[in-house]
Design a protein around this nucleic acid. Structure first.
Lengths: 229, 229
DNA sequence: CGTGGCCTTGAACACTATCAACAACTGTGG
DNA sequence: CCACAGTTGTTGATAGTGTTCAAGGCCACG
């Protein structure tokens, strides 16, 4: 669980910076740890800091006036979250709940401002990162708007595996305790549909399911569904 | 249809810049006009320039491998589009079709680079702009994932009116020739559902519909539907 | 005018949400 | 170690929403 400059260097925001810049950035970081079930910040809180997850897992959730929820994304080691300060936004647009005990580096607004001024390359990186996120969101919009639940769920699982896959004996497990409800909110459907679909897939030998746990056994089979082949 | 510095000053990317900076930016712009039905660029084309629409109307569309389409947004006078170069993306993620004869200012990558270097405030603006776009997309994701077609359509119309509303005798018209199909792709449904819903609303006196045209008569009524009151 | 594109409407059907009841598991405290 | 409460997950029945397909009308433009 080393959290040296390697982690920072791999965080896209800090990619390709000079070693001394990275060192300065690391020195400027503060740390914050949050127990399972607690949260780093709530939707609507004033945006105070940029976060990079060092260990653990975090679920972002967004809720509308009527109480409907979505999970725009989940966060693993090395991922940035709480980017609002970088984007000059005054409040966090989503809530960040720790799925397991988690530990993050954070930089408050003032510090961030200073770093941006001192290292102009940061701004370029920030734009790249945000651009990527934008693309990701556009893809999900296209997905939710135009394909069926089963296919969406398959794609969601593949995304999760890519992001947080862990090799185990039976295949690749998603190394994050996600409930059926969480999965449903990740792919824009109900927990019932998720439960049903996963049960069927398990009986077909595509996956193994457990409480807060999904393991992909036949990845190719899941890809076939995701791509509608 | 003056297109002086005022337009640039109102484009969020150039907001708050010094007058001489604005003048330099304007001098660096090239122009491009595109006839109705033609397009500025296609999804997948190499990202060559940032655009700001000076006159006309543009529809962005994104298509997936299976041919499903969505319209992430429409563009009116003063709006930026084709931001890919700003985000260091190599290709445009969507197609920009002119709904009517349109005219835009454009800045190619090299020029943009030069402007960014010369005017550091541009980078901050760019991040703000992209942050806003990100929020907008997250909202739409929440919307598509969790609310019904009728309500989505109401919200879509209200958004369009806010962006491109034109006062007319009967109410507020959407000043842009959008087909039922376009509307469907804007709110993630089918042209049939849009047609049906609009017909019903017309019979209830909420809107007046025409070919490529929607006029909101009872805005409050539409808001009622949009907010599910 | 005639042709093609756009729009409307009806009917059937597929999908998925909703609801209810229950089963399985986790963690807690006796 | 067991009992219990609370949470999480499963499954069936049902109904509603929205898509799909087909047929026809309307409008704009050449």
């Amino acid at each position: 669980m080393s959290a040296g400059p390697h982690l920072l260097d791999h965080a896209p925001l800090f990619e390709g910076l000079e070693p001394d810049a990275l060192a300065a950035i690391e020195r400027a970081a503060r740390v914050r740890s949050v127990d399972r079930g607690a949260c780093f910040f709530h939707q609507g809180d004033p945006a105070e800091a940029l976060h990079v997850l060092v260990s653990g897992a975090v679920k972002m959730t967004q809720v509308d006036a009527a109480g409907h929820q979505v999970v725009p994304r989940v966060i693993k080691r090395g991922d940035m979250f709480g980017c609002a300060p970088v984007l000059s936004r005054s409040v966090y647009p989503a809530t960040a709940d720790a799925l397991v005990d988690s530990y993050a580096w954070i930089w408050d607004c003032a510090t961030l401002q200073r770093l941006f001024d001192a290292h102009p390359a940061l701004a370029r990186n920030a734009l790249r990162v945000v651009g990527a996120r934008l693309n990701e969101l556009q893809d999900r919009l296209l997905e939710v708007a135009s394909i069926r639940v089963e296919q969406r769920l398959a794609r969601t699982l593949l995304r999760l595996v890519r992001q947080a896959g862990k090799r185990v004996d039976e295949g690749v497990a998603i190394d994050m305790p996600l409930s059926r409800q969480d999965l449903a909110e990740l792919c824009g459907t109900t927990l019932f549909s998720v439960s049903r679909t996963l049960s069927r897939w398990e009986s077909e030998g595509l996956v193994i399911i457990g409480r807060h746990r999904v393991t992909i056994v036949d990845r190719h089979g899941v890809v076939t569904i995701a791509e509608d082949l």
